[in-house]
Structure formats: C-alpha cells, structure tokens
Nucleic acid binder design. Structure first.
Lengths: 218, 218
DNA sequence: AAAATAATTTAACTCTCAGTAAAATTATTT
DNA sequence: AAATAATTTTACTGAGAGTTAAATTATTTT
C-alpha cells in the first residue's frame, strides 16, 4: 500500500512533467510563430511527441494558451491583492506610493517575463475570435475580472483613506488598467517581433507621474 | 470615342459597385461572426456571389479587412490634422480645449460608427497573427503612424505655444493614444458581442479630465 | 447581326490545420 | 507469463483559405 501510493505519486509526477514539457514547447513555438502561426504539430514536434498526445493533456489549442497565460495573470492579481492588504493594515503613507506600486506591479510583471507581452496579445486575439462560447475565454475573462476587482478595491480604499482625491473609483480603475493595457499593446505592435520596445517603460513611467499629478491628494 | 469613354466609365462604376457590395457584405458578416468566424464563403453568399469572385477584387482575406478599416483610420488622421491646422492658425485659446478636441476625435469616430470598435479589434488581431510579412499589416501600421505623427505635432505645438506644461511630447502622444486604445479594447472585451459598453464614454470623459489636470498649463 | 475575343463568374478542385478514432506500444497488475 | 490498463502514434475527417480551368456574359470586330 505504501509502495502503491509512491508509484501513484511518480505517475502523477510524470504526468505533470509531460504537461510542463508541452507548455514549454507551446510557449517557445508560439513566441516564435504567434498563435495562428504555431500549429499543434509544430508544438508536438518541439516537445518530441505527436499531436494526439497533446490532446491527451489539453482539450483544445485555446485551453493550451489559457494554461500558458493563466499563472501570469493570476500572479498579477495576487500582487494587486497584496497591495490592498498592505493598504488595509496602514502600511502606506502616501497616495503617490500607492499609484507607484500599482503601476509597478504591471510593468514589473511584464519586464520580468517579456513573453507576457506576446501571450497577453494572444489571449486578446482569442477573446475576439469566437462568440462567448468556449470555456477558455470565460476563464480568461474571470481572471481579468479578478484583476479589476483588486484594482477597484485599492482605489476605493485609497479614496476613503484620503490618499486620493474624491474621484470616481470605477472610472479610475478602468483608466489605469486600460492605459496600461493600451500602451503595452501599441508598443508591442510598433516594435514587432524582437524583444521589448525601449519606449514601453518610459511611457508607463510617464503615465504613472501623470496619474499621480491628477489623482493624489496633496 | 466619347461613347467609348462613357462605357469605360460605366464599367469602372460597376466595378466599384461590386467592390462596395463585397465590402458591405464583409462588414455585415464580420460584425456578426468576427474575423475568424466569417468565412470567405459566408461573405460571398451574403453578397450574392461566390468566393472566387471576391478574390477577383481582393487578394486575401486580410486585404479585405484592411479595405474595411482603412477609411476609418484615415478619417481619424485627417481630423487630427485639422486640429493641428487650427492650432497653427491660432484658433485655440486654451490647452483644455485642445485635449478636449483630440479626445473628441477619438470617441466621436467610435460613437458615430460603432462598428469601428469591432473592426479595430479585428485589425489588431491581424497585426499579431503573422510575422512582419503581409502588405496588409504594413498598410495598417502606416496608417497608425499617420495618426501618431498628427498627435505628436499637436502636442509639440501645444507645448511650444505654452498651452501645455513642458512635458515630453513623445510620451504624451503615446499615452493619449494608448489609453484611448486600451480602454476601448477592455470595454469591448468585457461587454462582448452586443453594442457598445455604456462605460466607454464615461471612462474616456474621465480620462480627458485627468489629462487636462495633468497636462494643461494654468 | 453574327462571329470572335475579352472579361467576369463559377464549379470543382488543392493544401493546411484542428481535432479524432482506432491500432500499436508500453506499463501495470494478476 | 498472461491479462489488462494506460499511453502514444498512425492514419484518418472536416473546415476553410486560396486556385485553376471551364462556363458564362459582355464587348469588339467584321
């Protein structure tokens, strides 16, 4: 019995390893060829297996992308929630610091893993493709909502604590997230394939300053 | 000879009419089913012809989308250039008015033709799909650049004329366009298929106010 | 006005890719 | 060692973008 359970564990480990191998391969191929350009056969070849094996682990190509993007957005939401916790326990001394940290969460996540750029774009691409069907898209929308809620809570608390001017919280949240998202998009688009646009960070830094000027109570 | 040229004209008119019929059909089908969902056969059926006829008028599906989006972005660039001309001839009395008009160009264009929402998204979708190949994407990038240049010129003049604070012009331009773009994207994405998000306009209005606070010299 | 020619449109393909079914292989249990 | 279960692969299907060559329609020439 003890032996049996250890074998079960090994099997599960193997399964996870295989899943991970597929994800790594998918990441590599998709970054090189983008979503539409990366065929399931390409990904399988990169992973040293064949296509149907992938379908053993992921129901559709979309699910594969979601599995790739999910942890990154989740991390983002967690980091935002951490700020919220800090804010609640009175660890912030200024509104400026709050804006700075929120913006930092965004561009840190992106800078740490530049792949996020492309993956985010890919996720966008999917969101448009089909009607609202597809669990993959619903999953991504939910993750997006998580981030939005976290941002909303931060802004709301910052206003009630007197760090921010008495702004509309919903609009503020939308604007911060939207501006970040849009800038990332257009920079990525202008810069094309290779690497990160050198303008991304300056523009975001600039946006941060702009928001501080407009938002923070002096 | 006079007769011949009038016949030639009629032929060209017919050709234009057919081109237009195809574009109308493509617009209708793509708005209903989005880019990937709309097949060339669908579009042909909607136009009352068959697929190869479309290929007589458009080289690829991408070219078809570009033909759809092109006039709208072009109009946007023209409207921005009009502001620039006004600014040059001293028709503006305040920086606030400039920001207002620029933002207005954006959401007016979008509000006048809600289809723009989806088409813009579709264009985005294409930009990501392939490597830099494809003349379609180059064309769209050029159009985007036109808008950027117009915005840049406006900001630059506004600074030198003392309407705006001494901000970084490049960053300002990127930020304005990026925030507009990103907000439009996320609203569209959250709202899904049917119509325009009721939040879009308020969020953009809010962004405008925010920018005025941060940008305009008092 | 009829035949010849040119342009347009279409039926019937090809090719690529996501996804699947069933056979073959490998691992596990009896 | 045989039987059974799980995994992987070979060989498909189906859908959609784009093409080819034949059929149709319009235009020009005689």
């Amino acid at each position: 019995m003890q032996r049996k359970s250890s074998i079960t564990k090994r099997i599960q480990r193997e399964k996870l390893r295989r899943t991970d191998e597929i994800l790594q391969a998918a990441l590599k191929v998709m970054l090189a060829k983008s979503y539409t350009g990366a065929t399931m056969d390409d990904i399988a070849a990169e992973a040293g297996i064949t296509k149907p094996t992938i379908y053993q682990y992921f129901k559709t190509k979309d699910d594969l992308v979601v599995a790739l993007v999910e942890p990154i957005i989740l991390t983002l939401a967690e980091k935002l929630n951490a700020i919220k916790t800090d804010l609640d326990s009175g660890n912030y001394k200024s509104g400026k610091q709050i804006v700075h940290d929120v913006y930092n969460v965004y561009y840190d996540t992106f800078e740490t893993d530049p792949n996020l750029f492309k993956l985010f774009n890919i996720f966008m691409q999917m969101g448009i493709k089909k009607g609202q069907n597809s669990t993959a898209i619903k999953k991504i929308r939910d993750l997006g909502k998580k981030c939005f809620v976290a941002g909303h809570t931060i802004a709301s608390t910052a206003v009630s604590k007197g760090f921010f001017k008495d702004v509309d919280v919903h609009n503020t949240t939308e604007f911060v997230w939207g501006s970040f998202w849009g800038i990332a998009q257009i920079e990525q688009n202008k810069w094309g394939e290779e690497g990160i646009s050198p303008y991304l960070k300056p523009v975001l830094k600039y946006g941060e300053k702009l928001l501080i000027t407009a938002l923070v109570k002096k």
